[in-house]
Amino acid sequence: MNQKINQHIAYLMKEKGVNLIISQAKDSNGFVIPHFILSENDIISSVIAINEMRNFFAYLNKQEIKSFKSIGIVCNYFGVKTFFQLKFENQLKDLELFLLIPTDDDFIEITSEKQAEDYLSGLKQSTILVDEELENVKKMSMEERWNYWMKTLELCTKCYACRAACPMCYCSSCTTECNIPQWIPVPASLHGIFEWHVMRAMHLAGRCTECDECVKVCPANIPLNILNKGLHNKISEAFSSDDSSIKYALNFFQPDEKVDFIK
């Protein structure tokens, strides 16, 4: 991270009592990895482009990390979006968070919901690549789409990396772990895989921040962002064109809503 951020991290640790900073670094193979700063000696300078940066908010779901209470996170646009959504869902109650967003040779610090909202309203991340893929899938006929997904899902081993890396998957006990009844078949057969991905997409509908962590961590390259983006589009089209109200999607309704396919 750049000089100014590193100086600020040192300041946070010394003056503000922050005892953990989740920063980002590149390892020898070029992967972007989390870099945990526990003391000032751990501070390193590294260069990662802002669009290469990952969203490490999933670590806040770990009890061991939560116990640090006062945590700094180096993130980009999607991190702020995640912060905003998690705040809305009352998940960051006991935590004091410092978001550090690097810019060219400076940084932005965000600590409150208000600041996050201001930051997000001024920016709009483009998602052209996903849009194109989604368009391609939507153009297919039903049979083609089914075959396309069966082919892509075939390699899934149900390692649940998509669940582990997702900052919104914070449930302490997942539906897949429930066995009375067994909602999701345990074996990684096409059937079990299909139901898992349907369930994952449904439970993230209207909450997904589109950081694409699930795609980045999937060993089987499954384009889960197509599903996420498709649902995002559907929700904003069907319920409200205003992006900010999407956070209410499935636990809120308008009495005058009409749905054409329910006869």
Binding site: L134, V137, K138, M140, M142, E143, E144, R145, W146, N147, Y148, W149, F194, H197, V198, A201, M202, A205, G206, I226, L227, G230, L231, K234, I235, A238, F239, A249, L250, N251, F252, F253, P255, E257, V259, F261, I262
Partner: peptide
Amino acid sequence: FHAQRRWVVFKEVLDIMGFD
């Protein structure tokens, strides 16, 4: 009303996945 919203989203998931 909640069900209605849920079906809109659920139908879209199944549609994208090619479910009939």
